[in-house]
C-alpha cells in the first residue's frame, strides 16, 4: 500500500509539512517495504490558484492509497475522496513518526475538509496549537 505525505524535504527524518498544497515535497512510502521511498518536488506549490487540486492530482497519478495530511482544503479533499484515497490526520512530528502512527492505527481518518482542527473555544486547553496550515487549495487566482 502506498502512503503519500507532504514534507519539506526528501527523507523520513523530516518534519511533517504543515501545509498540503504548498509543501515543498511529497514523500511516498510503501507500507510493506518501508525502505521503498519515492520523493518528488511539489510542482503545485507555485500555482497561482488551485494548488491543493494540483497536488492531489499528482498523488493520484502516483497511485497512492493513503494520504496523511495536517489539514486540507475542500477541493483537494474532494479530489482524493473521488479517487478513493483514504485521508488521515497527521500528528506533529517527523514523517517516520507519522508512518508508524498510521501503521499502528493511531491516526484519525479525516472526515471532511477543513472541518476539524483547533476549534478554540474559550478556555479550551493548551496543546491544541500546531493545527497546521490548511491546504491552500481553495486559492482563487
Amino acid at each position: 500500500m502506498k502512503i503519500g505525505i507532504p514534507s519539506n524535504g526528501n527523507d523520513l527524518s523530516q518534519a511533517f509539512a504543515t501545509v498540503f498544497g504548498r509543501c515543498s515535497h511529497f514523500v511516498i512510502v510503501d507500507s510493506t517495504d518501508q525502505k521503498n521511498i519515492t520523493t518528488y518536488p511539489n510542482e503545485a506549490r507555485n500555482a497561482a490558484g488551485g494548488a491543493g487540486i494540483q497536488a492531489a492530482q499528482s498523488l493520484i497519478n502516483q497511485q497512492v492509497d493513503v494520504v496523511i495530511a495536517p489539514r486540507m482544503g475542500p477541493n483537494a479533499w474532494n479530489v482524493l475522496q473521488g479517487a478513493g484515497v483514504k485521508i488521515f490526520i497527521g500528528i506533529n512530528g517527523t514523517l517516520q513518526e507519522n508512518i508508524e502512527a498510521y501503521l499502528a492505527g493511531k491516526l484519525v481518518e479525516m472526515t471532511g475538509a477543513a472541518s476539524f482542527g483547533p476549534g478554540m473555544g474559550r478556555g479550551q486547553g493548551r496543546g491544541m496549537g500546531r493545527g497546521g496550515g490548511r491546504g491552500m487549495g481553495r486559492g482563487q487566482g
Binding site: A44, G50, I53, Q54, A56, I60, N78, V79, G82, G141
Partner: peptide
C-alpha cells in the same frame, strides 16, 4: 493553468 480540473480514473472533477 488555473488547476480547475482534476482527472481521476473514472471521472473528471471541475472546480
Amino acid at each position: 493553468e488555473f488547476n480547475a480540473l482534476a482527472v481521476l480514473s473514472t471521472q473528471v472533477m471541475v472546480f
